[in-house]
């Protein structure tokens, strides 16, 4: 029976999915449940340790309070360094991400080879975590903020570049065509016809990434790439929980401020 015959025979019956589609949907659901159970089994989680987890957590909190407030004077320097790492890393990101985005966008890249190079750089950058980039740059530059700045940039180029490239691909083609029709050069078409259209995305993405980078740069010190992370790491290792709580509060404050700045800037761009 074709759907038309069926509709003629049962004019008051309507179902969104055919029986076959319904079956497939159930199969997907069962499949996902199966995968979840399988993962849990394979991880061999020692459930024994979970019995007193709530007590451990409560104990940790008691050891963290009261925060050792005097410690704040010791961390202001590294805290500011953390912000500088994030900011400089983001500036370098923009310098690299913009040209790479034009290579990686299908409508502005010169040919298939340049498109591939652009995409390859973006994928490489994004497939490695900031901390792993940190390990690599510590090996290259030695420990310190320089390694941190470059690892922030290395990871962010992929993020910022990908989003800008996608917005370049979505521009109004007509505007660029009109600029081209005036006899403008290729570079001028990009400058006048394309960039103004993607400028809000450039600003928005870069500020958003700066906000993420502030959070990421707080842990870069774990691998020796500068910032407050190194002190945080050593305080944790020394079980100096009252110092740790001061640092967590300070980082929380900075992240809150950077998020406020980023949200305000993004709201004001039109």
């Amino acid at each position: 029976m074709t759907p038309e015959d069926h509709a003629r025979k049962y004019p008051d019956v309507w179902k969104r999915f055919t029986p076959k589609e319904t079956l497939v949907r159930y199969a997907w659901f069962i499949g996902i449940v199966f995968v979840a159970i399988w993962s849990l089994k394979r991880l061999e989680i020692p459930w024994f340790y979970f019995l007193d987890a709530h007590e451990q957590a409560a104990d940790l909190v008691t050891r963290m309070v009261p925060p050792y407030w005097e410690f704040f004077t010791d961390i202001t320097g590294p805290l500011i360094e953390t912000i500088h790492i994030a900011t400089l890393g983001t500036v370098i990101t923009l310098l690299f991400a913009l040209p790479i985005a034009f290579l990686a966008a299908r409508n502005t890249t010169p040919n298939a080879a340049t498109w591939f190079v652009g995409r390859f750089i973006l994928v490489t950058s994004r497939s490695v975590n900031t901390v792993v980039w940190g390990l690599i740059f510590v090996a290259i530059f030695g420990p310190g903020p320089m390694a941190g700045i470059w690892s922030i940039a290395a990871r962010s180029i992929g993020f910022v570049g990908k989003l800008i490239a996608e917005s370049i691909e979505e521009i109004d083609r007509g505007t660029a065509e009109a600029i081209e029709a005036t006899g403008a050069s290729r570079l001028q078409v990009l400058m006048v016809g394309v960039i103004p259209q993607v400028l809000p995305v450039i600003y928005g993405t870069v500020v958003y990434r700066w906000d993420i980078n502030i959070r990421e740069s707080t842990v870069l010190g774990f691998v020796g790439a500068g910032g407050i992370g190194i002190i945080l790491y050593s305080s944790i290792n020394q079980f100096a929980w009252q110092e740790v709580s001061v640092m967590l509060i300070a980082v929380f404050g900075i992240v809150l401020i950077s998020e406020l700045v980023s949200a305000t800037v993004r709201k004001r761009i039109t």
Partner: peptide
Amino acid sequence: RRRMGMIFQEYNLVE
């Protein structure tokens, strides 16, 4: 192209 001006249905201005 400098000698040919073009006008479009969707205006095609840089918004």
